[in-house]
Simulated assay, not measured.
Amino acid sequence: MNILLSAAFVLCWSSGFVGAKLGTEHAGAVTLLMWRFLPLAAILVAVAIGRGWASWQGLTTRDIARQIAIGLLSQSGYLLTVYYAIQLGVSSGTTALIDGTQPLVAGALAGPLLRQYVSARQWLGLCLGLAGVAVVTTADASAAGAVAWWVYLVPFAGMLSLVAATFLEERSRTQVTPLVSMTVHCTTSALVFTVAAFAAGAAAPSSAPSFWLATVWLVTLSTFGGYGLYWLVLQRSGVTQVNTLMFLMAPVTAVWGAAMFGEPFTVQTAAGLAVALSAVAVVHGASPRAGHERVTTARRRPRPHPPRSPTPR
């Protein structure tokens, strides 16, 4: 089951880079993000109302505030930088490469912040994964000579934003259901991007069919699929293993781009994909006794669950 969840997460998360490229061809990043999150927020709030807010019982104002902060970091901040970078000319593969450095940053910080120490074998897998991602996207990055150097700092800032959200979630002692977190995160992002779009005079959507295709694509595959599975896999596997899957994003994005946009898929791309796959196998095959005894101890700390509501008759 974990393998299937991991594979689905990689495919759905990679779809976000492809959908961003498809949507920003006809509209700005803020416009696309506004129309991505407005219907999402409406659907999720309607579901919450229909369920009688049962999943929200037991949550404090502090819990909701933490989820708002996580949403601002993991959705608003992260996605805006990714979309804006692609809009400025950074290719989807290079954006995925910069996003793929997240495991090294998260792995380095997991020990001092979460007491989840990374074993030597895991560090080997992390470095191997970074090498595989670099092999795939080096040629693409060198070919994009017309893009200013500072533009590459935009997706890097987004990567740091997602890392911060991950650690903020991991330090929480209250277990929040995926439905509640998704509702808070998407509603927060809808408000942020709607205000930003109207302030920039860019709220009107594009009439191009590809814009609406990208919107549906991003709502279904990227948000419900990729974003939802990110937190699910994080809960089941921990910071290091879930972030190692990020190494697969650049190779998979390269394959997807070749199939959908006619981007070249070379021997170098295939080699990088093979290296990234081996990196994931190394990390996921690491012995839990070597470097994860402290992780297990830290994660076994009980989190209070919100009380269940009476079963409706």
Rank of each mutant, 00 (worst) to 15 (best):
Leu79Gln: 06
Leu72Phe: 04
Tyr83Gly: 01
Trp56Tyr: 09
Gly77Cys: 04
Gly71Asn: 00
Trp53Gln: 13
Trp53Pro: 14
Ala69Arg: 04
Leu59Asp: 09
Trp56Asp: 02
Ile68His: 01
Gln75Ile: 01
Gln75Gly: 01
Arg51Gly: 15
Ser55Phe: 10
Gly71Trp: 01
Asp63Asn: 11
Leu79Ser: 05
Ala69Phe: 06
Trp56Leu: 11
Val82Ser: 13
Leu72Gly: 02
Ala65Glu: 13
Tyr83Leu: 04
Trp56Pro: 02
Trp53Ile: 09
Ile86Tyr: 11
Leu72Glu: 01
Arg51Met: 09
Leu80Arg: 05
Gly58Ala: 14
Leu72Met: 14
Leu79Ile: 05
Ile49Ser: 11
Arg62Trp: 15
Leu73Phe: 01
Gly52Ala: 12
Trp56His: 08
Thr60Gly: 12
Ala85Val: 08
Arg66Cys: 06
Ala85Tyr: 12
Gln87Met: 07
Arg66Pro: 03
Ser76Ile: 07
Thr60Pro: 08
Gly50Ser: 13
Leu73Pro: 01
Gly71Thr: 00
Ala69Gly: 12
Gly89Leu: 04
Gly58Leu: 08
Ile68Ser: 00
Gln67Asn: 10
Asp63Phe: 08
Gln57Asn: 14
Tyr84Cys: 03
Val82Met: 09
Ala65Trp: 10
Ile86Arg: 06
Leu59His: 15
Ala69Ile: 01
Gly71Ala: 02
Gly52Phe: 11
Asp63Trp: 02
Ile86Asn: 06
Ile70Gly: 00
Tyr78Glu: 00
Gln87Tyr: 05
Gln57Val: 14
Gly50Val: 11
Val90Cys: 06
Ala69Val: 07
Ile68Val: 15
